[in-house]
Simulated scan of single mutants.
Amino acid sequence: MSETLVDLGTVNVPSGVLVLGMAGGIDQWRDLGQPLSERARTAATNGGGHLREWLCEAVAVPAAADRPLRVRASTSPSPFDGEPTIATLEISLGLLWPETTDRSVPVWLGDLPVDRCGMVVGDAAVLDAWTGMDDEPADGLADVFYWGLYAADAHAQFGGERIAQYCLDGPHGWLDLPVAEAAARAAELTAWRDRLHGKGLMVSVDKHTDFHRFRRAGWHHPLHVGAIDVSGCQVLGIEWDQGDHSIRHRGERDAGQVYPVTLEADEAGEMVMRWTIPPHDFNDEDE
C-alpha cells in the first residue's frame, strides 16, 4: 500500500453493511427479488462478497456503524486525455482485522466492472431508497440542458446560462426548475428545433433523482466524485469520463473488463476494502 492516496470524502453506514455498486442498477435490485439490503446483509454476515443479478452488480462488506468511513483513491493517467483517473479505490471499514486471519494475505471478494453510469459507495439499507434515472425526484425539481449545432441560435431565442461541467463551459440550460416547467421549456426548444431545423439541437430534462444528483455533485471534482444525502446518510458517487470508459472499460463484464475487490489490513491493523483497476498498458497498443 505504498501508493499516494487522495481523500474523496466519507460515507455513513448505520446498518453496518457497506456497498460498492454499479450506479446504473442500484434502483433495480428491488425489482429483481430481494432488496439490495437483504442480499448485502447475507454477504456481510459471511465476511463480505459479490452480488450479481441480471445487469446489477455490487460488493457488500461489514463496516462500523458508529462513525464516518473514509474513502480514498490512487490515480493513474487516462489514455484518453492524460487526466488522472481512479486506479485504486480504498474504503476504510472501521473494523479491526481478525486476529485469527493472516493480515498479509488479501481476501478476495469478487470483481466489478466499471459502470459507464458510475459507481456508488454507501449504506446497504439506505441504497434501498435510491432513486434511479426513471424515478421521480423527491424535491419536485429538474434541470434542462441544450447543446448542438444550433445552440447559439436557441440561446438567442430562449436564453439560459452556460452550465460549467468538468472544467468545461458545458451546455446551456436552467437548473432547479419545477418538473412541469422544465418539461414545458424542453418542449418549446424541441418544437422550435423541429420547426426551423429538424435536427441539430439536443435537449434533455434531468429530474433531481439520486442518480442525477450524484453526477451533478461531481461536476467540479477532478475525479468526478460527488457526495449526496440519501435518507439522512452521506453517499458517494463516482462518475467515469465517457472517453476514458470507452478506451479502458468498454464491454464491461461481457468483454472481461472486470477488476478485483479485496479486503486488506491497513498499517493500523484495520480492515479496508480495495478495488484495484490496473493502469492502462500503452505497450498493448503496439501489439
Rank of each mutant, 00 (worst) to 15 (best):
E252T: 15
H249T: 07
L93C: 14
A268Q: 10
F158K: 01
G160W: 05
V114D: 09
K207F: 09
D210M: 02
L189Q: 14
E3N: 14
L55F: 12
L51P: 01
G122F: 05
C167A: 13
D115A: 13
T4Q: 12
S37C: 07
V120I: 10
T75W: 00
Y166D: 12
P77H: 04
C56G: 02
A183T: 13
L18G: 11
D139S: 02
A180G: 08
D128P: 01
A58R: 00
A23K: 11
E287V: 12
R30P: 09
D229G: 11
Q28E: 03
G49P: 07
A182P: 14
P113H: 15
A180C: 01
R274K: 12
W54N: 14
H172R: 11
G218Q: 06
G148L: 05
A180F: 00
I163V: 13
T45D: 10
D123A: 09
V105A: 04
A156C: 07
T131K: 09
D66Q: 15
T88Q: 04
V179P: 08
A125T: 15
R72E: 05
T75G: 02
L93P: 15
G25K: 00
D139Q: 04
D27H: 04
A60Q: 11
A60N: 14
T131M: 00
M271S: 14
Q165G: 04
A217Y: 12
P260W: 00
A191I: 07
M119S: 11
N12T: 15
D7L: 01
W219S: 13
M271F: 01
D176I: 06
H155W: 00
Y166M: 11
H197C: 02
V19M: 04
R70A: 05
D143C: 15
D284A: 15
A156S: 08
L177Q: 11
S74E: 02
A180R: 10
G200F: 00
A65I: 09
M133T: 13
A184L: 10
A180N: 09
A151T: 13
F211P: 01
G218C: 07
G118R: 06
